[in-house]
Structure formats: C-alpha cells, structure tokens
C-alpha cells in the first residue's frame, strides 16, 4: 500500500505556539480526519504540507517525495480547499476559474461545469455575495477540477448549516469511489469526521495524541460511568481523565480490557465519541498544567 502523505517529526516554533514532533501517515485511497480543539495545530500542519509555512525540522513527503524538492509536481496533484475563497471577492466564479484554471495542465472544464451544476453555484454572481455554503462549494469545485489525487481541506464544514454540511460529507464519500484519491480533512466538528474518515489523527497543543484507523480508535477508547466509590487514586491511573459529580463519575479509558478487569461489572461502558476523546484529553492536559 503506497502512502499519499507521510509526515515525520515535524516541528515548528512560533514562540507562543509550538508544533512538536508531529508524525502520521495517510495511505492512498483513504480519508484522514485531522481533529483537535482550536489552536491544536491542525492548520499549521496543513499550511506546512502546502509549503505556506516553513518547518523548523522534520520531513513531509507527498506521493513518496519531499514536498519542497518536488513542489510544483506535487501541487499539480493536490486540490487545496480553503475555508472560504475570500480572495478576489469582486470576481465572479467564472472569472476566478479563468484565473485559476491555466495553472493546471489537467484542468477539466467538464468536471468543473458538472460540479457547478451539481452544487447549483451561480457562475456570474460576485463571490462577495455568496453564502458561506456557496463559497465553500465554489472552493471545492475549483480544487477538484484538475483530477487532483490528494485533496487537502482546512475546516471545510465550519460555519456551514447542517444541510450543506451533510451534502458536503456525502460528496466526499462519493469522491472516494475513486480508489486513487486521498483526502486530508481538518475539523473541530468531530461528528463530521466520524461520518467520513477512515483514519483519525488527533492533535492537542501542537502534539499528535494518536493517529490510527477509526475502528482502532473505537476499540481502544470507551466512556466509563459509575458510582464515585469506584474511583480512587489507583483506579484513576487507568483513565485518560475522570470527572466526578454528585451522582457518580464519568471517565475515558484507552485500555478497555484492563479497566474492565479492575472495575468489573460495577461500571457502565459506552462507546466513546471523538468529542468525548477530545474533551477528556483536554481535561488531562489541563490537569498536567
């Protein structure tokens, strides 16, 4: 299995924020969701991949080659979707397309017109009059009309209403019928990631907490609930984080079998959502100071 993206030990220091030894791999033909709270470093990773931000150390390989040494070649195969196409707002989509299209040898006007038709985007209306959803659809149409093999999307669903978000996610799923395509999709809306991603990379405060398949994440983590009497310093060690209240405790474990051995059937075990995982990791980081 070949990899579309390989990142190893990527570091970047902004002074007030640091990306620390970020490593993960996206195999070809899959969708990876890059999740994490605001300020986790998702956008910095994406900007580094796109060579917008210079790394301090580490390696980024696209299609098996260094992303800077083969920059132009790699970018011809990438479709980059910005959060919104908020540049040149005075232009219509048709005119913006006329600016962007000549940069790509493999620009396919039929695909572009097909996407414009499917998304019902007005071609001659100025971009500044577009809704957020319409702007995002335009951005996707521009990014996908040159037979891109790797689609990089930075927070594509943030700010969209539920209907447009669902449409967008359905579209991404359909896109993956082509097994040569891969998608890296950052979002802090974990439900979106849960719906479409095959791999999940969770970032927190500039570090990768985990990067694995969605199934592995589901198996590894569980939300545990029970009475407060079950929680003491020894049992707490088996949780990522625990919060207690008047009616009992709730905690996230990353070792379900071990936790079950210790707490046996006195506790209730539920599947942890990505939101649970993010939430409890945040508690853990705060506790660690």
């Amino acid at each position: 299995m070949s990899n579309t993206l390989e990142i190893s030990n990527l570091s970047k220091n902004y002074g007030d924020f640091q990306l620390k030894d970020v490593s993960f791999t996206l195999p070809t033909g899959y969708i990876m969701g890059l999740i994490g709270p605001n300020g986790a470093g998702k956008t910095t990773v994406i900007k580094t991949i796109m060579n917008l931000v210079m790394k301090d150390k580490g390696e980024v390989q696209l299609f098996g080659k260094d992303h800077r040494d083969f920059e132009i070649e790699a970018k011809k195969r990438i479709g980059f979707v910005y959060d919104t196409p908020n540049y040149y707002e005075h232009l219509s989509l048709k005119r913006l397309k006329n600016v962007i299209a000549p940069f790509y040898d493999r620009w396919d006007e039929n695909i572009f017109m097909d996407l414009v038709g499917r998304f019902e985007i007005p071609l001659n209306k100025p971009l500044k009059k577009f809704s957020k959803g319409m702007a995002m659809k335009s951005s996707i149409a521009l990014a996908l009309s040159h037979h891109a093999e790797f689609i990089v999307m930075d927070e594509p669903t943030s700010g969209l209403d539920p209907v447009v978000r669902r449409e967008m996610l359905d579209f991404l799923r359909n896109l993956m019928e082509d097994e040569k395509k891969s998608i890296l999709f950052s979002s802090h809306i974990t439900t979106d990631i849960e719906q479409v991603a095959d791999y999940i990379t969770f970032m927190h405060k500039g570090k990768v907490v985990f990067s694995k398949t969605k199934d592995a994440v589901r198996e590894q983590y569980a939300l545990v609930k029970g009475g407060n009497e079950l929680i003491n310093e020894a049992t707490k060690q088996h949780f990522v984080a625990v919060r207690t209240g008047a009616y009992g405790f709730e905690g996230l474990t990353d070792d379900v079998s071990q936790t079950k051995k210790i707490l046996s059937n006195s506790a209730i075990y539920e599947k942890a959502t990505l939101e649970d995982i993010m939430f409890f990791n945040n508690i853990k980081t705060k506790a660690e100071g």
Binding site: L52, I72, E73, F80, Y87, E89, F103
Partner: peptide
Amino acid sequence: MFKTDAVFVSLPVSR
C-alpha cells in the same frame, strides 16, 4: 489586501 500570496503559493508554482 486580498492575502493572495498564500493562495498562489498553494498552486503549482514556486515561490
């Protein structure tokens, strides 16, 4: 004004 350098660097061109 439009911050377009970032947009065009993401296209297949070198800096």
